[in-house]
Design a protein around this nucleic acid. Structure first.
Length: 156
DNA sequence: ATTCTAACA
DNA sequence: TGTTAGTA
């Protein structure tokens, strides 16, 4: 792999992107006191540390959770209710992501237009979806071989 | 400079 | 929940 690509990858590898309590606080508008309390209640988690340090480390995932909880708190929910709402939304997002990633086989270029390969329609045909900049989505069925030939795999 | 826990004029 | 004290 090209060195440049590797550098870009590292830059955007948010698994390594972590925050301490002060940063997370200013980003979300939630006080350090609240963050520690929420953790004690089990609503959020901080990263386990093997080194002897005690300063909490939060992952990107926790940032999302805290942001959602803050959102629902501002809407007037109690802390417990806000946590439930956040968890429920997280589950819906996971479900939708699984639904889409399972169905999407890749992107195809057909007559210079981009289309989504939505997988097998039957034994011979593949369902393709076209997304125009304006107008509604349209669908076409292509022979499996042709669809295969025009599709760039999304996975790697 | 920042975070930690524990406690409250 | 905020704030403060005394640490690491």
């Amino acid at each position: 792999m090209a060195e440049f690509t590797k550098q870009v990858r590292d830059t955007f590898d948010f698994h390594r992107l972590v925050f301490r309590i002060g940063e997370l606080g200013t980003m979300t508008g939630v006080s350090a006191r609240q963050l520690r309390y929420w953790e004690k209640k089990g609503f959020i988690t901080s990263q386990e540390r093997t080194d002897g340090q005690q300063a909490r480390v939060y992952t990107f995932k926790t940032l999302i959770k805290v942001s959602m909880m803050k959102h629902f708190l501002d809407m007037g929910f109690t802390l417990t209710a806000a946590e439930h709402q956040s968890t429920a939304r997280e589950q819906r997002v996971k479900y939708i992501h699984r639904f889409i990633s399972t169905g999407l086989q890749g992107l195809a270029n057909i007559d210079g237009q981009m289309a989504l390969n939505l997988g097998a329609f039957d034994d011979q045909q593949t369902l393709m979806a076209f997304l125009p900049d304006d107008g509604p989505i349209t669908y076409r069925l292509l022979p499996n071989a042709e669809a295969q030939r025009l599709t760039d795999e999304t996975d790697e």
